[in-house]
Amino acid sequence: MAGSNPNAKPMNLTLNVWRQPNRDAQGQIVEYKVKDISPDMSFLEMLDVLNEDLLHQGQDPVAFDHDCREGICGSCDLFINGRSHGPEKGTTTCQLHMRKFSDGDTITIEPWRAHAFPVNKDLSVDRSAFDRIIQAGGYVNVNTGGAPDGNEIPIPKDIADRAFEAATCIGCGACVAACKNASAMLFVSAKVSQLALLPQGQVERKTRVENMVAQMDIEGFGACTNIGSCAAECPVGISLENIAMLNREFLAAKATSNNLA
């Protein structure tokens, strides 16, 4: 069946892929060739082709994380030619299409590199540090049941929209991989901003930011030196304004700490 672009010519590519059997093993780049790649394929469909080839040859397919393949679950996480999620701005790896590459290209594919994201195998990394940061305070303390009617908490549209923008972070970790310090500031700031903007988040506003930042440090993420590579590579456009907001929130919280412990 022809693709959406009948003039698109199939491509042959060289792939340099990071292979590492498990967390404790040494890893290395291994070269593979793939043939007849349609420009309409997604990047992960191209890797599917490689993996089917490898399996047929009796070789171990390349492990990588993915699921929704529509840019929303945050599973996919490849470092392609030195960039988080590859060359296209505002795009997750699964939404990157091969039409962004040319016949004969060599593509280097590595996992996220960060102390806090150890490699499970090949291109799959462990991002549970992000979950632990959320567990440290990225929520509103409400139990199920007994919530007031939804319309009893009116929220100005522009505030709701800004909170929504911050809440669209998919937790992929591209910001960490893009940062030379492997800082998680953009990820943390997105959640802090969302809840600091909304009336529901006010009660725990100070403790939340302190606890989340403390957990971020415990996990071994680096410091933020305001370079901005994180926001430049974020696939959903989480903006640096969130980091500015996080810094303000953090200073204000420290000045009048509610954390009695």
């Binding site: 929520y139 509103v140 409400v142 199920t144 049941g145 919530a147 007031p148 009617d149 939804g150 319309n151 908490i153 009116p154 929220i155 100005p156 549209k157 709701a160 929209d161 909170a163 929504f164 809440a167 969302q194 809840l195 909304l198 529901q200 988040g201």
Partner: peptide, 22 residues
């Protein structure tokens, strides 16, 4: 109806009208 209330209380940023209502 309880679901919407619960989600709003959690901070789910549903779309809103200019008057601030859902």
């Amino acid at each position: 109806v309880n679901i919407i209330d619960q989600c709003v209380a959690q901070g789910v940023p549903f779309a809103r009208e200019y008057g601030g209502l859902l």
